[in-house]
Computed example of a mutant assay.
Amino acid sequence: MTLKNTPDRWGAVSQSFHWLIVLLILALAIVGLTMGELPRTPKYFWVYTAHKSMGITVLALMLLRLGWRLYAGAPKPVAGTPTWQAAIAAVTHWALYALALAIPLSGWLYDSASGLRPFRWFGLFDVPKLVGPNEWLADQARDAHELLFWVLVVLVAAHAGAAFYHHLFQRDDTLARMLPRRRPRPTTPTQDPDHVA
């Protein structure tokens, strides 16, 4: 597998960015949907800081992924894909990129405008504030953060559903080209039962 994308497949770098970001966003979603139920103990604040740290990580990875996409290009649509499907897929990809950037940015803005102390990214360094305390802006950023998350959920479901539809019913390589290519098994010559060593 090559590092760079080819006309037929996503390369190793794009695949790594894709699946790492998917896992991080899944973890962020689980934590984000459940941390409000946690009692306000030191564990709650640790979980909350971890959520924010992972969000900043997704933002940084998405910027790197976008830069790599602009540099390495993208595979062409699978042969036989109707033009309208290719257009919808392209719009969906860019919308997912935009949401994966906007959601952590809105969370960072919410944290900044809330007037809380700077949080430390995984305990290593303080993350700077984007703005000063502003209750109205904090409310708007929080609402945007939640709304954009649910829009992302809908788009991810449509994106994954389309990939599985292509894989199961169209029988094409739409899903497979974002997965590591399997190495073919070495073939061993079949032994002639009549052959005596």
Results as ranks from 00 to 15, higher is better:
M1H: 11
L3N: 14
L3A: 14
T6P: 04
D8R: 14
G11E: 03
A12F: 11
A12W: 08
V13H: 01
S14P: 05
Q15R: 13
S16C: 13
W19Q: 01
W19C: 02
L20E: 00
L24K: 00
I25C: 09
L26K: 05
L26Q: 04
A27R: 02
L28K: 01
L28C: 09
A29N: 07
V31D: 08
T34C: 06
T34D: 06
G36C: 03
G36H: 03
G36V: 03
L38C: 05
P39E: 01
K43Q: 15
V47I: 11
Y48K: 12
T49H: 06
K52D: 04
M54L: 15
V58L: 10
L59C: 08
A60V: 14
A60E: 05
L61H: 04
L61W: 04
L64Q: 08
L64H: 07
R65T: 09
L70S: 10
L70I: 14
P75I: 00
P77H: 10
V78H: 04
V78I: 13
G80Q: 09
P82R: 12
T83V: 15
Q85Y: 12
Q85A: 13
Q85F: 12
A86Y: 06
A87R: 13
I88S: 14
I88E: 12
A89D: 06
V91R: 11
T92N: 10
H93W: 10
A95R: 03
L96E: 01
Y97K: 06
L99P: 03
A102E: 02
A102P: 01
I103S: 01
W108L: 08
A113F: 00
A113I: 00
G115T: 04
R117E: 15
P118T: 10
P118F: 07
F119S: 00
W121A: 07
G123E: 01
G123C: 03
D126I: 05
V127T: 02
P128D: 00
V131P: 00
E135P: 01
W136V: 07
L137I: 00
A141T: 00
R142K: 13
D143N: 15
D143C: 10
A144H: 02
A144N: 06
L147W: 14
W150V: 10
V151P: 05
L152T: 02
L152S: 02
V154N: 01
V156M: 08
A160R: 08
G161P: 04
A162Y: 05
F164S: 05
H166T: 02
H167M: 08
R171W: 10
D172A: 06
D173F: 09
L179M: 13
R185V: 13
P193C: 03
D194F: 15
D194R: 15
H195P: 06
V196W: 12
